[in-house]
Structure formats: C-alpha cells, structure tokens
Nucleic acid binder design. Sequence first.
DNA 1: ACACAGTACCTTGCGTTGCAAGGTACCTGT
DNA 2: ACAGGTACCTTGCAACGCAAGGTACTGTGT
Lengths: 106, 106
Amino acid sequence: MNIQFKKGILELCVLSILSRKNCYGYELVNEILEFMEISEGTIYPLLRRLKMDNLVTTYLQESNEGPPRKYYQLTELGKETHSELILEWKLFQASINKICLPEESK
Amino acid sequence: MNIQFKKGILELCVLSILSRKNCYGYELVNEILEFMEISEGTIYPLLRRLKMDNLVTTYLQESNEGPPRKYYQLTELGKETHSELILEWKLFQASINKICLPEESK
DNA sequence: ACACAGTACCTTGCGTTGCAAGGTACCTGT
DNA sequence: ACAGGTACCTTGCAACGCAAGGTACTGTGT
C-alpha cells in the first residue's frame, strides 16, 4: 500500500469507524489493520488532534485483559465533520478518476 | 477540496497526464487545475523529484508566447511506475470505501 | 517467584510533501 | 515604457505518517 496515498485520509477512516461504535486506540489500530498498514505511532497523535479539535470526547474503562482502555466517542461536531469528509472524499475520488482513469469514468 | 487528501496522489495525477501527452510544467498546473486546486510551488518540486527518480526526462522547446518551455516525457520506468500506481490507487480506493462506505461497497 | 507475551497507553525525532510567498525573464499589446 | 500573461524557479513553513523507543497492567508457563 502506497504510503503517500494514506496522508490525511486516516482521519476519515477513524471518524467512520467511530461513527459506528466507540473504540479505544489499540482497537482502532487493529480494525484499520484489516484494510491497510498502519502503526500506533500514527493513531495516537491523530486521536489527540481529534480531541483538541473537539471532534471526539474520551472516557476510561477498566479491562480484564490489560491496562484501562481510553474510549473515543464522536461529538456532534465530529459527526458533522464526518459527513462533510465523506462527501469530500466522494468528490475527490471522482476528480482523481477523471484524471487517471478517463475511459472508465465516462 | 480537502488539502490532506491530496498528499501523494498528485504524483499519480502528473504521471497519468504525462502518459497521454508530453507537457511542460505550467501546462500541467493548468490541466490539473480543472479538477482540483493546485499551485506551481507544488508542481515544480514534484517534477524535480520525478526527474531525479528517472521517471521522466526533459527537453526544451521554444515558444512564441513567452520563455522556452521545459517539456516532461515519461521514461520506461515512469510508464511502469504509472501502471503500478494506478493499480495501487484502485486497491486503495476499495479499501477506504470498505471502511467508510460499508453499505455501498457490499 | 520469575520470565515472557499480549494488551494498552504514550512520546520523540525524522523524512516527505503541499503551499504561500517571493523572485526572474520572455513576449505581446497599448 | 509598462502592464499583463506566460513560464520557469526557490525558500521556509506546517502538517502528517512512522520507526523506534518507553511505561505499565494482566495472564500463562515453568
């Protein structure tokens, strides 16, 4: 998987997963790992940014299998931003495909 | 258009356009501008990288409308890289859509 | 009791990339 | 002469992904 494609799209992926269920960081990494290469060093700083931008809130929950988990939950602003990003992503895909796959996107 | 989506995908766009015809830098900027926001300060350094990586060669050509134009032409390696990137882009799109649009990509 | 693997959190420093801002120089029309 | 379009380029900044490293808890095997 091309590293550069990933830039900036991870935020959309994280918001999408959180729109379906609250997750803790380590869980998010593993969810995304099913579809693309990703490392913890990428996710934790991204989650910090999302919280700083008020797109998510967090709460702690005990676990039987290790240290407490920090769950992330979308705020209203987070949900709105997610919807907007989905729209932008669809438009972006269409634009790129017009440039790169002109026959197929006719 | 989300700035972050763009990162790294511009190389694919430039190679795609060059795969159809040789272009000079200023022309590339205007071609891409039809589909997304882009600035010269992005394209020229990118073209320098492509040349350094032996994906393109360049030649100068006089113009009646201004200074000489520096045309960029794909090398064999550039064509191969372009094909690989197209494939990766298709796979990448599919992966992201599975995460972000799970109903639509069933 | 101790080592180890798995879980779960986090930070630092680096390299890459996109861009705003600025510069140079050529040609055409007024 | 000079303004505007064409065409090239560079510098410095900010954002992002990641490798590498660290901390600490739990359960399992020996």
